[in-house]
Design a protein around this nucleic acid. Structure first.
Lengths: 348, 348
DNA sequence: GCCAGGTGTGGAAACGTTGTCAGCTGCAAA
DNA sequence: TTTGCAGCTGACAACGTTTCCACACCTGGC
């Protein structure tokens, strides 16, 4: 790291005290009340006074003090968002969708990461409470955070999975459907030993994906080898070992139930020199750009991630209007994208 | 999209009015001043009273009102962050680094996207001003936003590129060095017709990368064909056409100066059936995971993106302590990662 | 000539916190 | 006995906004 030399800088012009409503009022010869009405646009103001105040505000570069407003109105235009891991593209896209929808509506996103840690999630909830956030959107880790928020009257939307104990909105993906289609696809190709890699949580997302895997087998009237279902610890230093262990049980296909597991599996396969789809088939849950770029492409269940984020934001904002609407749980549908990583198993 | 039926829900327990300092004080039989001192930990409080107040606060689930505090103290623990596009992995990683460092220090990140639009960036600056943000970190698009902020006394750190007209901190990557190494690598392999794809901006990042490309040629005493330098419009619907046009000029290698251009180029090459590195070589600026996963891997200039984000946050926070420290511009070094996409040009 | 109601205005009281300040208690030093 | 001071406390005034309220001015209809 280098530190560049600084050119002799023009002095920073006096950092003046911020302009307040009172300043505007004084300059325009009115009271603060009138200035407030003129600039916020509610209540009677004569066109004359309004015009004058708007001009003065513009001229002085008035920026309303958000804390004062929030303090008075008991609510802000900030929406809290908690995701597990911004580094994961899934969460990043989710956040991007949320941010876009919020910004269009004049709201801002305060983005915090828990690292899938309940305490950090709870801490985030406290921060949002402290700021009187207009609402909170989260990929939940535990139920406590949402309970705390809902009890205090803060609107909550859960995203991607459902954990709340108190009623709140949620936007989910039909995980069971996606997993069932993925599994069916493999079964239809003739696979009978399909390894499942899934994170060992109680989250509805992972549970749903497991259920889809089972449902597909049952619907086809085919037996399952329980040894082929591999539960991986959430923090996961040892994911690779799990993948290796699963391979030792000789599956002809693997269904990796999230993008991280899929990537890990793909790397292990590559290192071992196993060729897709000749030696083994692979399906991923959650389609990422790289899955289309590698050769062969990875068959994957594509989630409408960005749309989920947008929808969550919309749902949250709608609640600021219809306060007492009963909680709504929406499910968006994933789609199976078939690529080259899946084919009929090699003849035994 | 489906809406799931809602189970008959337990009524939400009365959303009670938030607990205030006054409530705590009353319950503990002290004044609000004493309660404030006890909970914030500055000023004299008897151990006895402190203990009592802490317990009451805990029992009632007290959450201090951030707006009131901000209003009074004229500064908040929120740091504004503006990035061009959260969907781009580069910016997502940057944000992740910033968020991590901020959270460790007890600050929060308010993340806004401009879409590389000056007006949206300016709007974001106004929002931060309104919230009395402790500081702002941005990948700048124009100079106006940072000028506005700096004039109002808000600390600004520019990231990835430098545009500010008023003095402020910055954390950059040595773009010229990275581009020079990439180009040198190609020259050393024997390439003499190296196409450059770069976005047509005045940003120091893109300018630096262009400069590195030129510098490498000059250092080697080799001529450049100006036709091989392709400037692509920033919004870029027509990037593909530019790539195609560049290919028609028969370069033996292409240096794509950001990850989007690299991806676009890669796709065009694939569609045309051109094989890396046999038919053409490719180097990318900004290494992303997929570049290591495709076959062959893409030789790329890897930026310490996450570290840049962290460092920017640290620099910003350090300024809250040393207020009058002269502005500092730091440059982190990228490293060239050589992979299979580059080789000597096919004998003509 | 009076009242009703629409317009427009400013004073003042919030919102919840922090910080200043004066004042209280003891207790030790003068 | 006074003085000083450390330890501790509560009143009170901010911070900048919004909002309720009272009031003042009109106009038009009785």
């Amino acid at each position: 790291m280098t530190t560049l030399p600084q050119e002799a800088d023009d002095a920073v012009p006096t950092p003046q005290r911020p302009v307040t409503l009172a300043d505007i009022a004084r300059a325009a010869g009115t009271s603060a009340s009138t200035a407030s009405r003129a600039l916020s646009g509610r209540g009677y103001v004569s066109p004359d006074a309004r015009e004058r105040l708007l001009q003065v505000a513009e001229r002085l570069g008035y920026v309303p003090n958000a804390s004062a407003r929030t303090l008075k109105q008991q609510t802000s235009s900030v929406v809290g968002v908690v995701v597990s891991d911004l580094g994961n593209q899934f969460y990043a896209r989710l956040a991007a969708g949320i941010e876009q929808a919020l910004r269009e509506a004049g709201y801002q996103m305060l983005l915090l990461g828990d690292n899938s840690q309940i305490e950090e999630e709870l801490e985030a909830a406290r921060v949002f409470l402290a700021m009187r956030a207009a609402g909170v959107i989260m990929t939940p880790v535990g139920a406590d955070a949402s309970s705390l928020l809902v009890r205090q009257g803060v609107a909550v939307v859960e995203v991607d999975r459902r954990l709340a104990e108190l009623p709140c909105d949620a936007v989910l993906v039909d995980n069971e459907l996606g997993a069932r289609e993925a599994t069916q696809h493999l079964l239809a190709l003739g696979h009978r030993r399909i390894g499942l890699l899934v994170v060992d949580t109680e989250w509805t997302s992972d549970i749903g994906r497991q259920r889809g895997y089972h449902a597909a087998h049952e619907a086809a009237g085919l037996p399952m080898d329980p040894d082929l279902v591999t539960l991986v610890a959430p923090d996961a230093e040892d994911t690779e070992e799990h993948v290796t262990a699963l391979l030792d049980r000789c599956p002809t296909a693997i269904f990796a139930a999230n993008n991280l597991l899929a990537e890990c599996t793909w790397r292990v396969l590559r290192r071992r020199g196993l060729r897709l789809p000749h030696d083994i088939s692979l399906v991923a849950f959650d389609d990422l750009p790289w899955m289309e770029m590698v050769e062969p492409g990875i068959t994957a269940v594509a989630q409408p991630t960005f749309a989920v984020g947008r929808r969550a934001a919309e749902l949250l904002l709608s609640r600021t209007v219809e306060v007492d609407r009963p909680p709504r749980v929406e499910q968006l549908e994933p789609t199976l994208v078939v690529r080259g990583s899946t084919a009929a198993p090699a003849a035994a």
